[in-house]
């Protein structure tokens, strides 16, 4: 098999909190390859958010090995990590995390600003990304002029605009109604079938069932790591 996109080996993450050491992650090892569709599942407090932060290079493990595309993340400086986040990872958050004062287009341009792309090309790529998520007619709207589903689409467009290696989505449907949630899941399905690597972080079984591989985390460890035998492929709106 080819080199995994993500390779983590016995990683642990501890925090100091009020003089006590909290073991958010105890011992996690896993590989994720290109074009996988993975769900990271677990109840709150299981450590899945910590794992997501580490996978997304927002945080680094206290112990263990993390290699991203064969590069040792532990060796990287803060600027290197920022560059990985900028070029290789597209985040989609539960609360969308759009900048309220910027238009949809400006929000999508943001990661391209930090990779130093000229304003002309930035604009072209942002328009394309917005059209890809079906919001070509909402370019100059600000987040508060968009519905929840539309905001999440803008956030997804922003995650895609740099053509990252991984889409990392943290409870992407958590703030959406069921119907809109299904639409968003359809979008992830499309992205995956076009060759993208998608990692979903969720505590909802219904959402995790869309993924091809389900990794369950509990008490800072991998509880199970299985192939999903019956992934959801129909997006009928109930």
């Amino acid at each position: 098999m080819s080199t995994p996109l993500i390779h983590i080996e016995h990683i642990a993450r501890t925090y100091e909190m009020g003089g006590e050491t909290v073991h958010a992650l105890r011992d996690v090892s896993l590989d994720i390859h290109s074009n996988e569709y993975v769900a990271l599942m677990g109840p709150s407090g299981s450590g899945k958010s910590t794992l997501m932060n580490i996978l997304g290079c927002l945080d680094t493990p206290s112990l263990g090995v993390y290699t991203f595309k064969g590069l040792d993340v532990n060796e990287m400086t803060d600027d290197d990590l920022a560059e990985i986040r900028n070029k290789e990872i597209g985040f989609v958050f539960q609360t969308f995390n759009l900048l309220p004062r910027a238009t949809a287009l400006k929000n999508i341009e943001l990661p391209l600003i930090y990779s130093g792309i000229s304003s002309q090309i930035r604009k072209e790529r942002a328009i394309k990304a917005l059209e890809d998520v079906g919001l070509g007619d909402r370019m100059l709207h600000r987040p508060n002029e968009l519905s929840g589903g539309q905001r999440q689409r803008v956030a997804i467009a922003r995650a895609l605009v740099t053509e990252p290696s991984i889409i990392l989505a943290d409870e992407p449907t958590g703030n959406l109604d069921t119907k809109t949630g299904i639409e968003i899941m359809k979008l992830f399905q499309d992205l995956w079938s076009k060759g993208n690597t998608v990692i979903l972080v969720t505590h909802e079984e219904d959402i995790a069932r869309h993924a091809r591989r389900i990794i369950r985390i509990r008490d800072g460890k991998v509880e199970s790591d299985t192939i999903n035998p019956n992934p959801v492929t129909s997006f009928e709106i109930p």
Partner: peptide, 10 residues
Amino acid sequence: GIRKSLGAKS
């Protein structure tokens, strides 16, 4: 936080 997650350096 948002800007940093999108690749803004310090």
